[in-house]
Amino acid sequence: MKTMLLFLLVVPLLSSCGFKDMDKRFIVKAIGIDKSNDKDLPLHVSLKLAIPFSQIKPGQTNTFQFVSDDAKTIAEAVQHLKSKVDKELDFSQSKIIIFGKDLAEERLNRESIDWFLRRREIQGMTFMALGDPSAEQVLKVKPKSERLPGDSLFLSFDQEGTESSFIVTEYLFDFHRRLSEKGLDPYLPVIKPLNGTYLIDQVAVFDKEKMREVLNPEETRVFNELSKKISKFDIETRTDTVQFAVSVSKFGYTYTIDEAKESKPVLTMNVKMTGQTAESSQSFDYSKWKLYEHEAETEEAKRYEKVLRKLQSIGVDPIGLGLRYRATRHHREKEWGRWSSVYPQLVFHVNVKINLSGSGGIK
């Protein structure tokens, strides 16, 4: 009896859990951060909000609301944005964070993503990207093919929809790690609005503070192969003697760093790939396959060396050569100091071995 009486006295003092029904929530699907034109309020924060509806009908276009605000910090912007909507902002299903190009060229460091890391609703697997010319313009695009707000971007990056060797995927947890990890620099895929849809075929490389350069599509493909070791892509060979494309199904590489000559350290990379002919301007003679393989190997080796030298000239290391260097030596901070002097002088030698397994479906 005493226990029951105590229970009845305590229950009125308990606070509610604060749960709100779905019809009282705005689901934030995508977040954009740009540089504003106001010096006192330097950040322009944009949110793409999904409006819940009970049923998706065939041919029905997605419904979303777009809101934005200028503020000193992301937290301040979000609080002020709540005064512009009639429902609670729910970030639990936010799947992509896009930074504008102008902001990335000025600064994009650990402080820039601190709010996202501290919000318990935002997952570490959230996609990261760079919007060109701005994150707001990317978020305002409404592709006819998508059924839910931002759905086309999610399908592009998680490879459940399109699979392209030009699309580089980056996550919040990995981007955060790269901002502080010695020997591993950040990168972000670049999204451009294009006639009611998106173009994603470039990658931006960063140092620990800001964007340094945007690689062109061909360099992006090579970067994707080296950083992600993707196994499905096409390569094209054009020489005076032959012109053909190879659809690669297997890919891998190893490398060693030789410091025997301190003034001329050498990185030797051995690349192996297997594939079959995808397109050719001439009949493929089996007796000349070795020639075709040699021509393709020479062209690919040049592409890999070009990208490696470009990243070296920019002074960034998004592939993680320095991280591997530190991991294979055992003198703590000495390795980093040594690598800082070795990397700018490194000479790249790339050897490519291609095995043509067939000539496609043509008999």
Rank of each mutant, 00 (worst) to 15 (best):
F244M: 02
F173H: 15
V316M: 03
S15P: 09
V168N: 04
N37R: 14
R332I: 02
V214H: 01
S357V: 14
W289Q: 09
N37C: 11
K87W: 06
G131D: 11
L155M: 10
E121W: 04
E225Y: 10
F206Y: 10
S357Q: 14
E209C: 01
S249V: 12
E236S: 09
H44Q: 04
D258K: 15
V246E: 06
R212A: 02
K192R: 15
P186E: 07
K192E: 10
K142E: 08
E209A: 07
L308W: 01
P143Q: 00
K363V: 10
T169S: 06
K232I: 13
G59N: 07
D132N: 13
R119P: 07
N355V: 12
K72A: 13
L199R: 12
E293T: 09
K39V: 07
K302T: 02
T277M: 15
Y325Q: 04
L13E: 01
S357M: 15
S92Y: 09
V10I: 11
S247I: 04
I31N: 02
D21K: 13
D34S: 12
K228W: 03
S340T: 07
L81N: 04
L323H: 10
F64W: 06
Y304S: 04
D102H: 12
R338E: 13
I74S: 00
E300Q: 10
L226G: 04
S134H: 00
D185G: 01
T3M: 13
L215P: 02
A278R: 15
Q276F: 02
E335R: 08
G361K: 13
V266R: 12
V78C: 00
L267C: 04
G315D: 00
